[in-house]
Every structure is written in C-alpha cells, then in structure tokens.
Amino acid sequence: MTESQPTGALKGLRVIELGQLIAGPFCGQLMADHGADVIKVEQPGVGDPMREWGRNKPVWWSVIARNKKSVTLNLRTTDGQDILRELVAKADFLIENFRAGTLEKWGLGYDELSRINPGLIMIRVSGYGQTGPYSSRAGYGSIGEAMGGMRNLAGDPSTPPSRVGLSIGDSLAATMACLGAMMALHQRHVTGRGQVIDSAIYEAVLAMMESTVPEYTEANFIRERTGAVLPNVSPSNVYPTSDGDILIAANQDSVFGRLCEAMGRPELASDPRYATHTARGQHQEELDTLIGEWTRNFPARHLEELMEANGVPAGKIYKAPDMMADPHFKAREALVHMPHPDFANIWMQNVFPKLSATPGKVAWVGEPLGAHNDEVYGELLGKSEGEIAALKARGTI
C-alpha cells in the first residue's frame, strides 16, 4: 500500500463494500475520498468486473477503487460469511448492490448483522429498491434511467431516446446512498443505532426529474426531448463557431442586452420580438438562428473572451484535453496525477466537494486483487499467518 494515507471528514469511520460495478462502488469511492477506511470485498480469483473497464486501457478501476483496501472473500461459503460477520462487528457502514434478497439468502441480512453491530448502517443500492413487486428483478443503471424518466428527455427529438454518455443512473443512486448514509450517521449520534439506506436507481433518477410529474397531473403536459435548447428560454443554446461550438446562456434581460452590445446589435435588446423573456421564448428559433449566423464568423476562443469581457455566461464544450489545458482546472487542482505501477500518465478527477478544514485527497489508486488481505485479516481481525494460509487453501480468501 502507498505510504500516503486518506484524510478527510470521514477519517475514523470504517466501510465494508460488497457488490461490484458502479452503483455500490461509487458510493464507496465518495466515502473513501473523504477519509473513510473502505475495505472492498471481492470474489477470490475473479474480482470486480470494473478491473477490466476503460476505453483502450482498463483505467476506470484506478478511479472507482482509489483509496480502498482490497480483500478477497467468498461470501458463498460458510467460512466467508463468518468472516464478513467479523468485519461487520468492526464497521460503521456496509455497502451492497446485489439483487434484493441476496444477502438474506446468505444469512447476512440487516436483522442478523444488526444483532452483531446495532450501530451498523447498511447502504443498499439496487435497481428497484428492497420492496415492491419489482424488487427481485435484475436492474442496471440504463433501465433505471429509462424507468425514472431521464432517457425519454435525453437527446434530440428527431432520434430515439439517448444515453447521456455516462452511467448517470448508477452514479446518482450511489450519491443519494452516500447522502442517506450521512443522514443515518447523524441520527446514530442521537440514538446509538444504525438503519438501512434503500437507494433505488430508478428513484434516484426520478428525484432529478424536476416538475415533470406535476406538469402532467396538473397541466396534462408531458415533457419530451428538446435537444440542446431549454424550451422557451432564449438565448441559451450551443452555437457554431469557425472552429467548433460554444454554449452561450444570455436569457436574462440584462444579460441579453450585454450580448446584443457584444454583437454590435444593441437595437435587438429593444426589439419587441426579443425585449422580454416571454417574447424571446416565443421567437426562440429565429433568435438562435440570428445569433448562430454571427458566432460562426469567429473562433470559439475569441467569442469566449468577448463574452467574458461583456459579462455574458459562455463556455466551450470541453473534452478531456480541454480540461487538462484549462488554467482554472489547474488552479483549483480539479485534476490530479497519481503514480501507478502500470500506467505512467494516470490523471483523474480530484476529490469533490472541497472542504476547507478537513479536505479529502486521493492517496492511492485502485489496488491489485487481495492486496490488503494480510493487513485486514491479520491486523484488523487478529488472524495468524497459519489461519490466513488455511483460509486461502480452502478458497475462502
């Protein structure tokens, strides 16, 4: 393990992370980022499939498993289940994202584990939640995004519903689960007892769906895909430049006036078609066309500087190379370079949010399978070298 140690507001708390892929492990990453001692439990000889994910090179593991200790444990065996109970006795949280009912099948449900550790907070992330007629179904993030309503709104109206380009449903459910865990931790300070956090992917997506449901129930309106524009809010769109695209958001009256000045068309601000928020919304398409005909004559960088000088929110559509080169990213250390035994140029997003008194940090990248078996089973659980060797020989670890 790297000599550097995690720091942050959660230092001193221990998390046992079960499950795999994104929905549970991203919750563990958030907690490890802020100093929690996260022990990731993986199947011996197999490990989390995330170890193999990444475009061109399997680098995603470096991010989602950073700051975590990796141990191997076969939870399908009696020995493995007993060892998990030993770990739970020394833990504050347990994260799992198996199909609902899996832990109960192994005799590791909350009722049993809370008898071992009444203060345990169990974080359960699943497709449909722990109750209800769909709870036993297999559920991936993409299905939760569809069922929660996000997929229907993603993309251009001329195409089928789109993916947003990220596993956003999984990450939302994990983030909500982490938020719930902090609420439960506060309550434990009051009662001394833990509880279960039930974070369903489709409900985490649903929580982000703004006023789409009351728009239907009260106004019989169903939102549909609108592409890059926010309907009836103008100008706020992606506009062409001579070398790419730029996003300009100048929908407020005063900001629109400043945009008109920057365009050399101050009269547009008082034109009845564009003078008010409502009027601009009614003439959104023609206003976007007018602005686009102007922006396409300049490079994006020139327009970005011009908008900044006139107090108009604007920005290029960033990709990874843009982020690496941006001075603001550098000044705030939004990206961090980490040493890695196999990859010499690993950069990744830094810890977020930033805390002024107890900042987190990336101490190490995702470790090899079982890298911390001796530390966790020997030092934490007090098992001898002989006991650890016997567990390994039996395939338990």
Score class of each variant (00 low, 15 high):
S199Y: 13
L185Y: 04
W106D: 06
Q187R: 15
V190M: 10
Y140C: 09
V125R: 10
V164E: 02
L166C: 11
V125K: 06
A138C: 10
L206H: 12
V196W: 15
T131Q: 15
P133V: 08
G127N: 07
S142M: 14
A138M: 07
P161G: 00
D156I: 05
L113I: 02
V125L: 04
G180M: 02
A204N: 08
L206K: 02
E203K: 01
P133R: 05
V213E: 06
S126Q: 04
A154Q: 07
G180F: 04
G192F: 13
L153N: 12
G107W: 09
Y140L: 14
A138D: 07
M182A: 12
M147R: 03
L120Y: 03
S199Q: 15
G129S: 08
R115Q: 10
G144Y: 02
S167V: 13
M182T: 14
I121W: 03
I116M: 09
G169N: 06
T131V: 15
G129D: 09
R193L: 13
M122N: 12
G169Q: 03
A181D: 12
I168W: 07
R115P: 00
G155I: 03
I197T: 08
R163K: 15
G192I: 09
G149H: 02
D111H: 01
G139D: 05
S158Q: 12
P118D: 05
M183F: 06
V125F: 11
A173Q: 11
E203C: 04
I143G: 00
Y202G: 00
R151C: 07
S126D: 05
A138N: 10
G119Y: 00
A138F: 04
I201D: 00
R137F: 10
M147A: 11
G194D: 00
P161L: 04
I143Q: 03
E104R: 06
L108W: 02
L113G: 00
L179P: 13
S126I: 00
S126P: 02
G148S: 02
E210Q: 13
S171I: 11
G109L: 13
V196C: 10
S158A: 07
V164W: 01
A146E: 01
P133T: 07
Q187M: 11
L103K: 06
Y128R: 01
R137N: 06
T212E: 08
R151G: 07
S211W: 06
G169L: 02
G127P: 04
E104H: 09
G169C: 05
D170T: 06
A207Q: 10
M150E: 04
T212K: 11
L185Q: 05
L172M: 12
R115K: 05
G109N: 11
V164N: 10
G194S: 00
W106I: 14
M209F: 13
R193P: 14
S142V: 14
S211G: 08
Y110M: 13
S171E: 10
Q187V: 06
N117K: 02
M183H: 05
V125P: 15
L108Q: 13
Q130H: 09
E104L: 12
G192S: 09
H189L: 11
I116Y: 04
G149C: 12
A173T: 06
S114V: 03
G169K: 00
L153F: 05
D111T: 08
M183Y: 02
E203M: 04
S211H: 09
V190H: 10
G155Y: 01
V205W: 02
H189I: 03
R193W: 11
V125N: 11
G107R: 15
T212S: 13
R115T: 04
